[in-house]
Each structure stands twice: as structure tokens, then as C-alpha cells.
Design a protein around this nucleic acid. Structure first.
Lengths: 219, 219
DNA sequence: CCGAAAATGTACTAAATAGTTCAATTGGTC
DNA sequence: GACCAATTGAACTATTTAGTACATTTTCGG
């Protein structure tokens, strides 16, 4: 009965529609939350699969194994911060305002993206082994240092900043103050009873970080 | 044959000698290295047991379970930094030198104790859940903030430091700069190709951190 | 010396976990 | 509309892993 078979085929609605890209993104989003919350060894593939709109089978189909999935999450995170950096336009601002803006935005980015902070912590625990193995991140070419160098030289030229500083140190200072503010909240809270996450504390700390960086640079 | 039995007992040398405290310390030392290297979920009890002079049986005998062992390691680490803090005597120094010494020693402590840094990272990933459940650490009472407050007030009194700063911010700044310098070495190296761990980089960074803190405080 | 409690050794188990097998369905292409 | 590669589903497996049962040895007080 060929005609019957055809009608069968024609009528039967798809039990599922293909959506490779959507599936990938969905898996990465769920996995991201799990890795951020539990670390690489702490995250469970079954748990990730369960929270996904798809199945464990697809995780292995697209990402090979658990570490492949983790790497994809990591690359996604770094792609985002790369975008954040490219969105900054410090060249348009006078040196002092440019540094203040950079420090402020960096501080805010960390506050608004604790997942990024936690994933970087996780990756450091693993000695950045996965970053190392990533081709994508190798060509990432974060430009933070160069941006700072440009602004710094302008500032020195204007007699505003003191000479002899290394842009790397400026970057490390901004990053350290911004990163620690999010990364170590939990232990600080337990040891000192101080809540770095409160709106009040954040506001004060933000101003203090900017002040710190400016004072480091200005004569 | 009671006499035979006695001679047996008398002659036979102990196949092993009891050493509860030594066993505990040995387990904690080995476990410490494993947790620091692999995190809480990444560390393997069997691996720890294998590297120990004793057996897995003893781990459970003394520490109950994996988390109990982790907690013991954590408490040990915090006891040490507590000792470090108590060894500081800032009251004897003039304000400026006191702050410089505090920043310098804190920086050095982190550099010399990367294990402490890594364990604090691990604990933060777990939202400081174990610190919270620890009675010992509850009564730890780290005095860093109070020490800074004392020095700061002296400095303000002498007209050396500017007014209106919170000792908490001073502490957070010193800690952040010292902590990040060790905690994020791996990712910084991969992303920027910069080796924060080299003797040269450490020397420069140390000076920069002290300078940063002094500039934050002085008028 | 002897009995009990503390400390240790050996072998085992139940559950969790990463990864696989085999087959079915879909969507485009000729 | 038939074929083929890409995609998805469901059940299964081998291993790892935290934790335990049971027996034995050591230490120490009375």
C-alpha cells in the first residue's frame, strides 16, 4: 500500500524539529551555570543533561566529552569579555577620565558577571590548562594592556601622570581590585562579617577603587 | 601452655606503634596538598590515602568523611594565617612604615603560601559553606581590620593620612592586590603571556602594591 | 597480668558517574 | 520521492569513588 504509506508520512507531524545551533546554545547555557556553581569536577554531566531541553546524548555528540563542554563554556565567557573590551572607547576621553572610566566599567563588569569571575577561578585552580589548549582563546588577543598604554602615554605627555609606570601594573591593579571584590565575597563575609555584595558596600568600594587607581597614576 | 603464650607476647615486637597525632598530621598534610591541587570534588580519598603513611580506614576514623577532612585542612590553613597576623607588630612603627610593612608582609605571605590562596579560592567556589559550619574558625577573630584602624587613626592624627577612609577599604585593597597576584597567575599567563611568578615581576609588583596602598592613604 | 578502649589493617559494597551502543528520525538534494 | 548525512532518542555499561564491616593489634589503668 504505497499510497497509505505516503499519507502516513505526509500526515505524521515531526515529533521533534532539528535545531543544532539552538541545542548547542542551550547546552552551553545550562553547562555554564553548572560549572560556575560546582567547578569542573563538581559538575555532573547527568545533572547538566537533565536541566537541558535535550539529552545527554547530544552533549557528547556536540562536545565530545565533559572537558570539551567545559572548554566551550570557557571560550564563550572569554568571547563575551572580549566584546566588552571592544565596546570601550577610551581614546575619545582625556587621560584622567579615560582611566576612571576604565576602572569603573571593569569594576561594574565583574559585579554584573559573577559567573565570569567564578569560571576564571575554576580555570586558575586547573592552572589554566584548558585555556592553554584552546585555539580560539589563543587568537583572542585581549587588548587591555595596549589600551592602557595609549592612555597612559597621553597622560604622561600632558604632565598629568607620573613617569616610570608599567601599563601592566595598572591593568593588574584594576583587575585585582575588581576581581577580588566578587571572587572573595563568601570568605570575607564569614571571616569579617562584612557583606561586600550589598548595594551600599559596592557603591563605596567602586569609588574607592577608582580613587586608588587615579592616585597610583597621578603625580 | 600459659608460659609459652606469655613468651610469645613478651617477645613479639609490635608490628606498628601507635601515633594518633602523627597520623592526623600526616593525613592533613597529604590531604591539604590534594585539595589545594584538585579542589574538594576533584580530590580523591583513595589518592589521599595512598599518599599517606597510613590507610583510608584512618581517614574515616579521625575525620568522619571527606568533608570533615576538608574542613580540618581549612581550619589548619586559617590557624596559620592567624599566627602570621599575630606575629605582626605594627604598633611599634610610625604610621607610614606600619602600613608599608603590613602591605609588604601580606604580599609576601601570599607569594610564599600559594596553597593558602588556592584553598581560599576553593572555599569561595563553595560559597564558604564549610567556613560557615566551622566552630573553630568562628572564634578565629582575625584582627586585620582593627590593626589597620589603629595605625590609620595614628596617621590621621599626625596629619599624614587623609581623613574619611574606612579601614575595611584599606584591608580589602591590600588583600586584593596580594591575593590576585597569586590566584590568577595561570590565566594571566595564558591570556597576556605575562609571568607574574618570575622573581623580577614579583619584585616590581611588590613595590607597586606598597606604593599603591601608601598613595591611597597619604594626603 | 588483664580487660577495656583506642588505634589500625584488610577486604568489601552500594551508589554515582562518564561515556557508549544501537537504532530511529529529520531535512535537504538530486 | 528516494537516498544520505546530520541529528536525536533510550537504554546500557564499565569504572570510579565514597564509605563500611569485621577482625586484629596496641596501650594503659587497676
Amino acid at each position: 500500500m504505497p499510497s497509505q504509506r505516503r499519507t502516513e508520512r505526509t500526515r505524521k507531524p515531526p515529533t521533534w524539529t532539528q535545531d543544532p545551533d539552538g541545542v548547542r546554545r542551550n547546552i552551553i547555557a545550562v553547562a555554564s551555570a553548572e560549572f560556575v556553581e560546582n567547578g569542573l569536577s563538581g559538575a555532573r554531566v547527568d545533572e547538566i543533561a537533565a536541566k537541558t531541553a535535550t539529552s545527554k546524548r547530544m552533549i557528547y555528540y556536540y562536545f565530545g566529552d565533559k572537558e570539551g563542554l567545559y572548554l566551550a563554556v570557557l571560550e564563550e565567557m572569554y568571547a563575551r569579555i572580549r566584546n566588552f573590551e571592544r565596546s570601550l572607547d577610551l581614546a575619545a576621553l582625556p587621560p584622567r577620565e579615560a582611566i576612571a572610566a576604565l576602572a569603573g566599567f571593569t569594576f561594574d563588569y565583574h559585579v554584573e558577571n559573577p559567573d565570569f569571575v567564578r569560571l576564571v577561578m575554576v580555570e586558575n585552580i586547573h592552572h589554566a590548562r584548558h585555556l592553554k589548549s584552546s585555539r580560539k582563546i589563543g587568537e583572542l588577543n585581549l587588548s587591555a594592556i595596549e589600551m592602557i598604554r595609549e592612555v597612559y602615554q597621553r597622560g604622561v605627555g600632558e604632565g598629568l601622570f607620573r613617569e616610570g609606570l608599567d601599563p601592566v601594573d595598572v591593568h593588574l591593579t584594576i583587575s585585582a581590585l575588581s576581581f577580588y571584590n566578587v571572587s572573595n565575597r563568601a570568605t570575607i563575609r564569614q571571616v569579617f562579617g562584612y557583606d561586600m555584595g550589598s548595594a551600599d558596600a559596592l557603591k563605596r568600594r567602586r569609588a574607592c577603587v577608582i580613587e586608588t587607581v587615579l592616585r597610583l597614576l597621578c603625580r
